[in-house]
Design a protein around this nucleic acid. Structure first.
Lengths: 111, 111
DNA sequence: AAACTTTTTCGCTTAGAGTGAAAATAAATT
DNA sequence: AATTTATTTTCACTCTAAGCGAAAAAGTTT
């Protein structure tokens, strides 16, 4: 996919690979759809991050979903849609999902 | 909910009840989100139609989902989201869903 | 067929998603 | 540490989806 294991990649490279603008990735981050590792201010995307973003991108571009729908499915741990995401990617994203859910419970508490 | 069993209601009344414009209901129909019975050209919404529309409206207004996402979940018979819809409403909507899926398979064939 | 409804079409508005360009900040290099 | 280079952030703009107002067209009713 991008060569070596456990490497991480700068935003511009990832954006190119995904075929989106880097500003789009910043935008997704605001919606907690991704959370790249940071050294200082600079972002580093892992392989799992990138595959996750591919998955998100497809939901948006291929299927026409919007951001809110995707975050809703994440929060409800939706099987039907999320299961289309590669097992290992979802695994490595799980910790992050938990973190996100906790934050969401604090901010707004419905459900 | 609206009184008597097995009755049906004209679009303006339903729109009022749901708190949306009747044009919105025509709009949803284009996206195959609802399919009211028709006598001639005139539409008649059943109780199940109305409850289904309430469900859809909440997904859109409360959760911020878009139409494409909802139709995707329907096509994938998504449990997590669709299960929030009353059993009986979903039941009476099932025949319609099957019909919708068949049409979709003819038009575009992916999946 | 006149009066009244419902449907359809056209065009406008608002908000979400995405991006370009430049300003601000950080990182790297000499 | 000062200059160059890269990244982040902000601002403003575009494009499309969702929704609705108003009027024209088609249907119903009496």
């Amino acid at each position: 996919m991008f060569g070596v294991e456990d490497k991480s990649y700068p935003i511009e490279l990832v954006a190119d690979f995904l075929g989106v603008n880097s500003r789009t990735l910043y935008y997704y981050e605001k919606f907690k759809l991704v959370c790249p590792m940071r050294r200082g201010k600079k972002r580093y995307y892992s392989k799992a991050d990138i595959e996750w973003l591919e998955f998100v991108r497809d939901l948006m571009y291929r299927e026409g979903m919007n951001l809110k729908s995707i975050t809703l499915l994440i929060r409800r741990r939706d099987q039907v849609v999320l299961s289309k995401c590669p097992e290992d990617v979802l695994d490595s994203f799980k910790n992050y999902l938990v973190k996100v859910e906790k934050n969401l419970e604090e901010e707004e508490d419905e459900e």
